[in-house]
């Protein structure tokens, strides 16, 4: 029931789309980004430490070295806790709602659940991002006052920005579920 496909994100990096089919109206899409590469970590740490050593060589103050170690450790922790996203999950349950969860490299997970009664539609939108135009999937939230209006837009897969071919696949199955249960 699970199928895995490889896609690329807008920067050309490989991402993995895992499509889990629990039932005809409940499907889970997981977009996993590549792990932190060891090479990058080593380069970052080495550059900070070499810089600290150069400063130490000039000033001959050992506090520079210890602060460099602390800065690297804290920075790495902050990076995996706040910035680095391991995978993003979209769980769509027909007639109940859509759940978006983002799990970070440290294991922290942030989840939001949007009820089906609040969802107007799921669409693919385009946006200007830096110097290029990208496509993204988003949920349109109904306005409680105006039945035709849109109160807000919730973008999906924000940190791993997949390309259009990946989005289309997710979009088609989402639309199938919504059409089936509405």
């Amino acid at each position: 029931m699970a199928e895995k496909n490889e896609f690329t994100d807008i920067n050309g990096k490989a991402i993995l789309l895992d499509c889990q089919n629990y039932s005809s109206f409940c499907r889970e899409f997981t977009v996993s980004s590549p792990k932190v590469s060891l090479c990058k970590v080593i380069v970052c740490t080495c550059s900070v430490w070499l810089f600290a050593y150069a400063v130490f060589f000039v000033t001959e103050n050992t506090a520079v070295l210890s602060s460099a170690i602390i800065i690297t450790l804290v920075g790495m922790m902050m990076h995996i806790h706040l910035v680095k996203v391991e995978h993003e999950t979209l769980l769509i349950i027909g007639s109940l709602g859509v759940q978006l969860s983002t799990s970070y490299a440290s294991g922290r997970e942030s989840t939001t659940f949007i009820e089906m009664s609040r969802i107007k539609d799921i669409v693919i939108n385009e946006a200007v991002y830096m110097q290029s135009i990208i496509y993204y999937l988003c949920i349109l939230i109904k306005d409680s006052g105006d039945p035709n209006g849109i109160a807000s837009v919730v973008p999906l897969f924000q940190s791993s920005k997949p390309r259009l071919n990946c989005l289309v696949q997710v979009y088609k199955s989402c639309q199938a579920i919504i059409a089936q249960t509405r």
């Binding site: 029931m1 629990y22 039932s23 409940c26 889970e28 769980l91 759940q99 989840t111 659940f113």
Partner: peptide, 10 residues
């Protein structure tokens, strides 16, 4: 703040 769902068994 809300709820979250987990698929139990299939």
């Amino acid at each position: 703040e809300g709820v979250k769902f987990r698929v139990l068994c299939e």
